[in-house]
């Protein structure tokens, strides 16, 4: 684990209240898709945990939504300003488990701010020779982002919006088969639960209010079939079979 000071390469709005921020940093620090960084912001006591959307040679990209004062302040930061990041945090997705499955298609399912980690995951799966199907869910067309980026990877992308203003009308589960073989999911908990119920196997990434982000404070513990786990350290990704709702 590292505490790094990174300069901002860019910070721009990509959808309603949604921003994409790229940092100059050693991208090798991010070992797996689904890992996150914890950002120290001036004037705020707790760090902001944000999942990694993409990495390139010498940089990583985060996508975040302005939901409070901290993320509002983040959205005002300019190119060249520096931030203090703890990284890499969390276990991330294990793509080997999906490769070994003989169970039909692999689905990547992201809802809202659950979409960004799916992008790095999609790239990793493609490099591993997989061609996952992508389902993205948003409330409304103004919130849609990254549809074109997934399509540019050559993947089959379906977008669902709750109000039907873009793509199909409904939830991500409306774009899923009755029982998906293997899913990688990230999004709000009700979405994860709905996806869980329509899948045989997979990995689910959970959000939580965190204290430290690195496993010390027990602020984000959850119950699993194998005992208590810390979302920040033992997660955020849990295997389908260990989840207790």
């Amino acid at each position: 684990m590292n505490d790094v000071t990174c300069a901002i390469k860019s910070n721009k709005k990509i959808a309603d209240q949604v921003y994409e921020m790229e940092f100059y940093v050693n991208d090798d620090l991010i070992e797996r898709p689904g890992q996150f960084v914890d950002i120290k912001l001036d004037g705020f006591f707790l760090r902001r945990p944000i999942s990694v959307a993409n990495k390139a040679e010498g940089s990583i990209t985060l996508v975040y939504k302005v939901v409070g004062e901290g993320t509002k302040m983040m959205s005002s930061l300019k190119k060249g300003e520096t931030l203090d990041l703890l990284m890499p945090l969390g276990n991330g997705y294990d793509i080997c488990k999906a490769e070994s499955t003989e169970d039909g298609d692999i689905y990547l399912i992201g809802g809202g701010l659950g979409v960004p980690p799916m992008y790095l995951l999609a790239s990793s799966l493609i490099r591993a020779g997989e061609k996952p199907k992508v389902i993205l869910g948003f409330n409304t067309s103004e919130e849609v982002f990254y549809e074109d980026k997934f399509a540019a990877l050559g993947l089959d992308v379906t977008v669902a919006t709750v109000d039907g203003s873009h793509g199909i009308k409904g939830m991500v589960t409306d774009a899923m088969p009755p029982e998906a073989g293997y899913v990688f999911a990230c999004g709000p908990e009700p979405m994860l639960k709905a996806v869980y119920e329509r899948s045989r196997d997979g990995q689910f990434s959970f959000e939580s209010r965190m204290g430290c982000g690195f496993g010390a404070c027990m602020g984000c513990s959850c119950r699993t079939k194998y005992g208590s786990k810390r979302i920040c350290k033992d997660g955020p990704v849990l295997d389908r079979e260990e989840i207790i709702w």
Binding site: F44, R209, M210, G211, C217, C220, S221
Partner: peptide, 20 residues
């Protein structure tokens, strides 16, 4: 002890609240 239900953490000006 498993502790309390989530959320267990909230931020405040100059600090935080926990109910682990």
């Amino acid at each position: 002890r498993y502790g309390n239900e989530l959320p267990r953490i909230a931020e405040c000006a100059g600090g935080m609240i926990n109910s682990v």
